[in-house]
Design a protein around this nucleic acid. Sequence first.
DNA 1: CCCGATCCTGAGCAAGCGCTTAGGGTCTGG
DNA 2: CCAGACCCTAAGCGCTTGCTCAGGATCGGG
Lengths: 206, 206
Amino acid sequence: MSTAEETGEDAPWGEVTPEAARRLLVAAVEAFAERGYHATTTRDIAGRAGMSPAALYIHYKTKEELLHRISRIGHDRALALLEAEAGGEAPAAERLAGAVRSFVRWHAERYTTARVVQYELDALSDEHRTEIIELRRQSDAVVRRIISEGVAAGEFDVPDVPGTTLAVLSLCIDVARWFNAQGSRTPEEVGALYADLVLRMVAAQK
Amino acid sequence: MSTAEETGEDAPWGEVTPEAARRLLVAAVEAFAERGYHATTTRDIAGRAGMSPAALYIHYKTKEELLHRISRIGHDRALALLEAEAGGEAPAAERLAGAVRSFVRWHAERYTTARVVQYELDALSDEHRTEIIELRRQSDAVVRRIISEGVAAGEFDVPDVPGTTLAVLSLCIDVARWFNAQGSRTPEEVGALYADLVLRMVAAQK
DNA sequence: CCCGATCCTGAGCAAGCGCTTAGGGTCTGG
DNA sequence: CCAGACCCTAAGCGCTTGCTCAGGATCGGG
């Protein structure tokens, strides 16, 4: 019914195709975000999706495969957001602010997903973890590139580019930990605040 | 043997008094930090402490009590570090930089402990969690006070004091997630970098 | 030499875990 | 009305979990 209108950017799990598999995945995201991967049982996931425990194994080989799918899709999305703002001819300050705003907004709006994506890495198998870490390396590279270009253009004054990149990403990612929907700030507001703070961190000193 | 020289500030668990109980607690910190609370078994903790699984229950009523003790001591320590730098007659900029440097250094040096303290809150019982959250509220208040005083004194320009306080603490706390001992940065260096970045975040604009 | 206190272990219980399997509904095409 | 594909469930297997308990090792005081 709502599949058609949800295929855009606002449908986070539109790419998960059998509808039953998507229901299970959404249920898993909620459960993992609330209790953590290890504290979540396959019975709980199946129950939230309105199915019996056995139904899960028709669509996914293991519980870890569910986590991997969530993590993979989430990282792809986060990286795409960064890359969308990184290119172009705009000044580095504008591109950095855009990247931070958009990245932070995603971590706030989809904070259940982001929590799983950012904080359950250790629960992945070795193989899957290395795959995901490579995506994070790419995110790091995108941000570092913007900052480097800002320094080269004389827009920024950053003594330690890798360290500042790390801090910027760390700041944004941690939004997923403390943000909650009942709080007083909207994702939009947090994005704007953080973009301002990050620009101050790299600004040319007076 | 080394108990005497470790009773100072550098002995994080000096206050845990029966020696066997301390061994178990240190083992639990390691295990929780590596695998997470829920993925750690009581057999693993006891094994690391060189004891049988049953020995744990002579010193602690439950596995959750171990987590609570770790969390409580860690939060007390972190709060004490902040408070030690917050007072005095020095300019707000100096006090803020000192607090960040010291807080970050602790999160890096004791990153195993800090990881448990900061990221396993959800595993606590309702009662214990409320107790710990109150300590975090106090940490927030300490930092907010320094920033407010800096604004009042005209040292800082901060449009959103609660939001900036949140961001500063979030930035520092997240060090525990990404820091690792084999990395290229020392806790000292990360503390210095972060103190600089935070001062930029609050600095009066040119 | 024995006594009681202290601290720990071996063995194991009930419950819950991830996952499997045999089989039964339901729907489409004829 | 039937056939066969598809999707799901009831039941449960083998294992691990947090935790318990009866009893043994060790040691200072009489």
